[in-house]
Amino acid sequence: MDATAAVACEGVTREYGGGRAGPLGRGPSRPTVTALADVSFAAARGEVVGVAGPSGSGKSTLLHLLAALDTPTAGRVVLDGTETTALSSRERARLRLDAVGVVFQRFHLLSALSARANVAVPLVERGVPRPERRERAESLLADLGLGDRTAHVPGTLSGGERQRVAIARALVTDPAVVVADEPTGELDTATGERVLDLLAETAADRAVVLASHDEQALARTDRVVRLRDGRRVSDGTVDDDG
């Protein structure tokens, strides 16, 4: 495993199900589903890595493991120098707070809060004083072209603006890794390209792992890991694949 990578995994397998159904575990055997099988992966700081594959190929499962949202059935995941496999749920939450930013396809912003407050929420957990939270959130939003929209609630923002707020929220803790799952899935082409540009810009001092179906989005990454039926089938640039 690459010890210098911002995030890496080695021979990870993730299985779901198994055991027996029923409240006392005496029901029929449940089938085991292998979502990911013996996959290794690494992303270094300054690198934008795409994860591609059809639905059910294991893209989201890999992202969840890399972001310490889940633990593998077998194999190892190292996030910002910390192996996640043996961590408790609370320890993984703390690691995520310090080391990971997540961007979702459907933004998932708190509708009651302004753009500024949404961006600042992760800093609350870190105990950052309010004036500093406010300053960092406003600065990030201004960097992402939303300096005049900081007081707006998500309901009054366009899809692209909401995704930019979500990116700002992912970056506000200055994480080592940003994980983005279909970040342009809900956006039109032009807005999607703008969001991808922003994600690429954020990769200067961190790793960005981006899962997508969209080949145009994947073309803007440094390299693409392709998955099929839970297995890695290739790792290279889009041009290599072509």
Partner: peptide, 18 residues
């Protein structure tokens, strides 16, 4: 109604206690 947003906060490391 806010479950997805709360879940997103959890993915970003916000603790259950908060």
């Amino acid at each position: 109604q806010g479950a997805e947003a709360y879940a997103a906060l959890k993915t970003l490391g916000t603790s259950s206690r908060t």
